[in-house]
Design a protein around this nucleic acid. Structure first.
Lengths: 211, 211
DNA sequence: CTAGTATCCGTGCGATCGCTCAGTTTTCAT
DNA sequence: ATGAAAACTGAGCGATCGCACGGATACTAG
């Protein structure tokens, strides 16, 4: 999986310096937590660097010790949340039947969204795109690979269709976008089992041979 | 269809005053055009009121004559774009067969997105939600009604399913979200007929009885 | 213990932001 | 032609923003 890591090229949108001692690790996570809380509670517009630092219980100087700019904070936040989602998706025994696989993929996405709909909605929909574009590209790549691997593993049970790459991308985007939209505009519905069922059925009927 | 109109309750997010002469109508549209262009070219973060006014060839004072605040500009912009999309969706003879109907709904959404993917992506994903929440609620209501009417008209050909209201909402969100996501992350794909075909097939197979 | 490095601090600068207001110009009804 | 209403103007205010910087403090390796 993609991971810039400590040797990754430095960018306007990633960490300027990697914390080495435990207290600085704590500082960085405090900053990210504060950013997430402010973003959740009152939106990107109110999330100034000074306010984030204050809320994190850290001086503004420390913040700029580790982040090259405001946008990098949200880029890093996005990256860490994506890592959790990816881990959850992958924590699964291989070689299951396709129906269980589809249920797992859809369920995993919805579970992730349910954990903090407001935060993810805000990350997707208020943070300037350039701030998280790099991270997003990496994420999409990883999820695409997983999606493609899943389809290849069950190719014989799929309806004849266009290229698998297109299908993998379409599947990923449709599931992801629908989950996002419900998180954004109808967070209550996320807990409705009908929603999960509908998404699973839609994907199943589109992908799989009848019977 | 919902329309606050000249007598609508004034709000932080709608017009403060309605233009009566032709030049002021032109002023308002110039402001909205400028806002759209700046949003498209360089994002919400750079779309300051001063810059919008300057780009519109209008003084900052005139801007605040008609808009109670920055966010109202984008709320109004969203409303006008939605009206066009709604008109396009509705400009259709009634009583078609469900397959043509699905193709029209999906096609209409994609056509809209194709017209200016960057603008619509930015509107959906960078403008603070509160700025367009009211407008969005009205839009969703109108499209929901259209979606529900469509399903009711062809109820006999639908697979047995949950309540139609849930189905209408799900259909609308799935189609809309998928189109948005492609506009946001893969605008090139919007012109690929495979995408339209995939969306149509997915919806058809989910909604309709086999055969 | 000490030298060197990592971390933290917070004042405050320059820029920009959203927006007001007092005044001028244009249009319209009569 | 004239008065009122509508529209337009732009200097500039107070607040806030992102962020640099110079120096204090905590930690670690030797």
């Amino acid at each position: 999986m993609n991971n810039a890591g400590p040797t990754g090229a430095n960018s306007r949108y990633s960490l300027r310096k990697h914390p080495k001692q435990q207290r600085s690790v704590a500082t960085v996570t405090a900053i990210l937590d504060a950013a997430a809380r402010i973003l959740t509670e009152s939106g990107y517009a109110t999330a100034s660097t000074n306010r984030i630092a204050e809320r994190a219980g850290v001086s503004i100087g420390s913040l700029y010790e580790y982040f090259p700019g405001k946008e990098a904070i949200f880029g890093e936040l996005r990256r860490r949340e994506a890592l959790k989602a990816y881990a959850e998706l992958m924590a699964r025994p291989r070689l299951e039947n396709p129906r269980d696989g589809i249920r797992h993929i859809v369920g995993s996405r919805l579970r992730w969204m349910r954990r903090n709909p407001t935060l993810y909605a805000a990350l997707e929909s208020e943070v300037p795109r350039q701030a998280i574009a790099e991270v997003e590209a990496d994420i999409v790549e990883d999820f695409m690979a997983a999606s493609l691997a899943f389809l290849e593993a069950h190719q014989d049970l799929l309806r004849p269709s266009v290229e698998l790459r297109f299908l993998a991308e379409f599947l990923m985007h449709a599931v992801s976008a629908t989950a996002n939209t419900y998180g954004l505009r109808r967070p209550e519905r996320l807990d409705d089992p009908q929603l999960e069922q509908a998404m699973v059925e839609m994907v199943e009927r589109y992908l799989l041979k009848d019977g």
